[in-house]
Design a protein around this nucleic acid. Sequence first.
DNA 1: ACATTAAGTGATT
DNA 2: AATCACTTAATGT
Length: 210
Amino acid sequence: MKDQLELFYGYLFEPELLLEIERVGILKEIKQGEQLLEIGDTMSVMPLLLDGAIKILREDEKGDELLLYFIEQGDTCAMTFSCCIGNKKSEIRAIAETDTNLILIPIQYLDSWMANYKSWQKFVLESYHTRVVELLETVDTLAFMRMDERLLKHLQDKAKVIHNDVIQTTHQDIAYDLHTSRVVISRLLKKLEQEGKIRLQRNQIKLIAL
DNA sequence: ACATTAAGTGATT
DNA sequence: AATCACTTAATGT
């Protein structure tokens, strides 16, 4: 854990803080598809991503999902702060998009770190800021883009977080993420394939000209 | 060979 | 863009 911590966070945190993290942090590996957090859960730890990616979902009354954004290496779950501090329940669901390694920090340390470590304060504020920006981007996407554009963006985002142009997924899964029906996704994907932008196979989409 | 699951398609709203 | 109803194709047992 020490090596990874220094590799990914060494330039961000002062040495004393790194030691603290090392002391109290719990290293955890999460397999793809595993759920980290369910709506209504209370937070007891704050995650620091080492590698991998996590998708953050919202859910409507009917239990249908909508993807909000991905969390990647160097990110943390911004929701955690607002939840931990007020001891509130989670508004979102978190599922591992890929196999993911992360460090869990018990929330009782957050307050004192906030007060004692300038680098921590900065990190928290900045990741909060990037979360808001990403969320705004998601709102824009939802409000102003048509489904074909949203699909394209989603494929690009997905390829980015897994660092691979070949996405293993089903049309149905994409439909869930974008909160639409499988039929719509199938048709749009078909169109993209005809335009030569992607190649389709069962359970697999290969991005070409994106 | 058969069942299951993923993907494609026309028609309707 | 959503839904239905149905077909076709791929894959697992």
